[in-house]
Design a protein around this nucleic acid. Structure first.
Lengths: 206, 206
DNA sequence: ACCGGGCCTGGACGCTCGTCAAGACTTCCC
DNA sequence: GGGAAGTCTTGACGAGCGTCCAGGCCCGGT
């Protein structure tokens, strides 16, 4: 049974959680623009409708806020490509959809992925980031593997490399494209598309 | 003709440059341990035999010091693999040497490459870093391409992908190995060796 | 012997940071 | 309508930062 106090408590918890999400969304926005090292709590607060003190009401400290943001980022980031897998029924279609998806992500969400690479680098120095970053990295690896496995299946072949290696190479491709795209290179996105198709075709045995 | 004053001036310039290199080497050490964002000029100075004021005698500001360090890093970093190219006369030997070279670098110079990925991420936010970082990236790309081209030559084949793509994938492989190695994974180096051999064999046409 | 300039020190300045606490405002139950 | 609990603001604190500068040291030329 639920008492009246329980219901009140539940509602407050929900509201509390919702405000945390709201603040984290704003923080994520600011972080993606300025980078982890250059973003202060005051600056994050200034891009919300609240004061900097509010951040400490909803998060115990800066690390907890950042980690909450990163986990929120993960949720959005990973699921995006699953539609591509289920919508394709030929290897060519899948390769095309995947290559185009990468290019779109690189163009539309450049700042967010810039932040991701920033945070992943920071996790090499900041012990407290490491487990969350590793978890996101693993889910990205699984996402890439779903593409590769499906591509192999549609081609009637078997993948020739491990999941870890597939992720490493596609990630390297994307990261380099992001670097060049943000530096203003016009060819970055086309090269990303071509590279992704090429890599995908080489990752299954003929 | 060189006057006495010229000779004095020359000697002083040399000494000045040498001390800059000395300070930069110490700074590079500290940076690789703590990361760009967490390293202050005072901390750099504490790991040398000089005071923090000295840094501003030899470098106009923090950015100039960091950039000087990065360029110094580049010089050491790039030339390392050229011996592998010239020492190998079979494709298998080259692949073996390259894979082993990557694994050794990942183990021995893990902290320095952690710093490299940190600075490369920072360059996406800090405009002033960008050109130097891009220059290093390009020289690394050329270094990888020398390996790939030589491997293709020894195999009597032609490379099947662009220089940019070869670099992107090998870099992704190395970065992922570094991440896992620094996280304590025992398999990271073996996977790196296997991945490098695999990738190399797939980057030339059969 | 002295003196000028290269070299280096260590403290001070102004600033921003994360954190915290006292208090005001809001909301909602009795 | 009063009071408790939740929510948010504001200002302060100490620490650390990059930078600057007045001054001391040392060494080579005159």
């Amino acid at each position: 049974m639920t008492t009246a106090a329980d219901r009140v408590s539940k509602r407050q918890v929900d509201k509390f959680e919702q405000r945390r999400r709201e603040l984290a969304a704003g923080a994520l926005q600011t972080l993606s623009e300025r980078g982890y090292a250059r973003t202060s709590l005051r600056e994050i607060a200034q891009n919300t409708e609240f004061s900097h003190g509010t951040l400490h009401y909803y998060f115990t400290d800066k690390v907890e806020l950042i980690m909450y943001c990163v986990r929120q980022y993960k949720a959005v980031c990973v699921q995006r490509y699953d539609a591509i897998v289920s919508d394709s029924d030929t290897p060519e279609g899948l390769a095309e959809g995947f290559a185009e998806g990468l290019a779109i992500t690189c163009r539309e969400d450049a700042l967010m992925h810039r932040l991701w690479y920033d945070l992943r680098s920071q996790s090499l120095f900041e012990e407290s980031f490491r487990s969350d970053v590793a978890e996101i990295d693993e889910s990205l690896e699984r996402m890439v593997w779903r593409i590769v496995a499906r591509y192999a299946e549609l081609s009637g072949e078997e993948p020739t490399c491990s999941s870890a290696m597939a992720y490493a190479t596609f990630d390297g491709l994307f990261q380099q494209a992001l670097l060049r795209h943000l530096a203003g290179s016009e060819l970055a996105l086309d090269d990303l598309r071509a590279g992704a198709r090429h890599l995908l075709s080489h990752v299954v045995c003929a």
